[in-house]
Design a binder for these strands. Sequence first.
DNA 1: GTTATCTATTCCGATATTCGGAACAATAGG
DNA 2: CCTATTGTTCCGAATATCGGAATAGATAAC
Lengths: 254, 254
Amino acid sequence: MPPTRDINLSVIKAAQILRCLSGGSREWLLQEVVKTVGLPKTVCHRLLATLEAERFVDRDPDSGKYRLGTGLLTLAGSAQSWFSIRASASQLLAALAQETRDAAILLVADRNEALCIDRFDGDYPVRVEGMEVGRRLPLNSGGGPLALLSFSPREIIEAVLARPLPARTQQTITDPVKLRARIQEVQRAGYAVGEEDAFEHLVAVGAPIFGSERRLMGAISLGGIKPRYDGPRISALAKKIVSVANAISDKLGQ
Amino acid sequence: MPPTRDINLSVIKAAQILRCLSGGSREWLLQEVVKTVGLPKTVCHRLLATLEAERFVDRDPDSGKYRLGTGLLTLAGSAQSWFSIRASASQLLAALAQETRDAAILLVADRNEALCIDRFDGDYPVRVEGMEVGRRLPLNSGGGPLALLSFSPREIIEAVLARPLPARTQQTITDPVKLRARIQEVQRAGYAVGEEDAFEHLVAVGAPIFGSERRLMGAISLGGIKPRYDGPRISALAKKIVSVANAISDKLGQ
DNA sequence: GTTATCTATTCCGATATTCGGAACAATAGG
DNA sequence: CCTATTGTTCCGAATATCGGAATAGATAAC
């Protein structure tokens, strides 16, 4: 690690460890953390002990294995409160999820990515994995992110088009020319359909949410497994999703 | 700060700063952070810069003020996944909130406190503040926490009774003798009603959730403003809440 | 029951890193 | 234009972090 001034290396190491623990949905042995982050055992141990004292890390009382701690929930709760759309959207999103039985999520743009800030699941027995609260997607993959991208200010669209487009699946649009065409399509339609372009076997339909002066505030998206999304249902859902998105926009405008 | 071995002071300071930012639901000037946490300006500045690089902190592009960052959402999402009750409860809780129009929350016991790990709001226009995801309550205040406490293992109950009972409002039970009696009442009834004992003007009804072998896994609670909770409605709601809690318990048992 | 092999934890001197006062920008207000 | 207030950069001194090695504890092997 280069001894850069004006930065605290210990905090960076601690963040590395937290990110390590956030991967794999499992509990971690000290030794596994050591191997993954590549720091000396003593350092990991000390940092983990500190993070545990601060409740950012929990450990299993029996096995002594490490996992992320509940203190993070508390902080994240405060962080979430910055997104005022959540309050306006939650009711309508929950109803949408219930009615369609699929997963309804709320996205905002964050550093040229789509960040999921809320989610409601319908009762369809196959649960959609991958887009939980806090997860991110590149703006070129998925119905929600595409809706977000297509109604973003021109400079953001150009910025995204200028950089390499990450491929999440075979279906992801990675050609900037094609993406530009797709964006125009979405702008015309008012919604975006993503078929297995963000997650295999999943389809999602997204629509944008606007605040006052038609400023883009976020997007909603409804997603489920491919077999449930044939042509006619997509059209029907698209109408519904756009109307819910508009309702949220109206609520925001007030 | 004492130079304690086996702990990383920089990380502790960073945590202090994060907690500072989480307070007040507002953005913070560097100087305000300095005053609040009591560390030198240079140190705060460096730590904030590091936390920003790690996305634990965001700053307003115009004002330069600091707030908690979106990286915390991502970590918290992983942390939340440890609570498997969430998946079993979400459907039923959402339906409960919709039907009653009030706020339905899911609690678990964490270090002798009640930790809110999920929440669904009904559409009643007065929003219940105070118990968002990540917030904590002492086990002696509020319908949910009381339900949690009353069905906890004996040793936890005794541990809580042995320590001083924090008063959140005038109505909070702070006398261990009275609390013991109350616990027995709740055990008999199968649910707990908290009237303005956790938050002024709010009433909540809580019921426990059990896993296999009747091990306590958490509690649900439904809450709203006092005028909406007269005697008859409380009785009716209690029945409903207990039945929802039982349904969640059943789902967990499978 | 004993040994071997894993773990996690503690110790402590060397040294790289953090500290933090002071000087410097940048911005706003009078 | 000057003053006040904020955020940022600088850099030598001080000290907290580092990390190899030793210890303790737990589990598996024989």
